[in-house]
């Protein structure tokens, strides 16, 4: 269906096909060059699909990992740009869906904002908040490196388990265990301090 004769493939696409065929045979240099060359193309597809600029790198990372996992499915007699574009578009749509679900879960209550004063607006409140933040930073810094990494990625930067696993190379299970242990340690520390 999308099979195209070599005469109809753009020169850069032909070069990519060659690099991917070499990568399938285990050529790491060709693979490294191919992945780096692909990044602008992936960003273009993601941007066209509607991904916001601040999320482009997340989508690119997801696409590169999918390319790695699916590299055996590429047929060098077909267009590489088309194969890559399909992966990039699908991952961009997955990202937009995930983001949409996240935004639907988060609600804003304007009345609540009006009715409750921000504790940080009074000098005492601001002081108390500063103290709490300092204590919390100290407690997180005192955690083991693995537990600290789990707290920073999952709790502070609000990454999903899959994203954190992709970023650190650790399994989702290991991250969950580290997060639970970290929360237990923090809870014990603050419960004891009260």
């Amino acid at each position: 269906m999308e099979r195209v004769s070599p005469a109809h493939i753009a020169p850069s696409d032909l070069a990519w096909s060659g690099l991917m065929a070499a990568a399938q045979a285990g050529d790491r240099q060709a693979y490294d060059r191919l992945l780096r060359d692909c990044i602008p193309h992936i960003k273009r597809v993601a941007r066209r699909t509607g991904v916001r600029p601040e999320s482009l790198d997340d989508v690119v990372q997801d696409v590169l990992i999918t390319v790695h996992r699916a590299r055996h499915t590429y047929d060098p007699s077909r267009s590489f740009a088309h194969w890559l574009g399909a992966i990039a578009q699908r991952r961009a749509i997955d990202h937009l869906r995930h983001r949409g679900r996240q935004e639907r879960r988060e609600i804003s209550d304007d009345l609540a904002y009006d009715a409750f004063p921000d504790a940080g607006t009074t000098p005492e409140g601001a002081l108390e908040r500063d103290t709490r933040e300092r204590e919390m930073r100290g407690a997180v810094a005192a955690l083991s490196p693995g537990q600290r990494e789990a707290v920073e990625l999952l709790a502070v930067r609000q990454r999903s388990l899959a994203e954190a696993a992709a970023e650190t190379g650790k399994t989702k299970g290991a991250l969950k265990v580290n997060l639970h242990r970290a929360l237990k340690t923090l809870r014990a520390r603050f419960d004891g301090a009260e």
């Binding site: 490294d32 780096r36 990372q61």
Partner: peptide, 16 residues
């Protein structure tokens, strides 16, 4: 970050 991702994927490459 993307450089790091590419480097790790390339290092992991095996013939398929």
């Amino acid at each position: 970050r993307l450089d790091d991702v590419v480097a790790r994927l390339s290092a992991d490459l095996a013939p398929v």
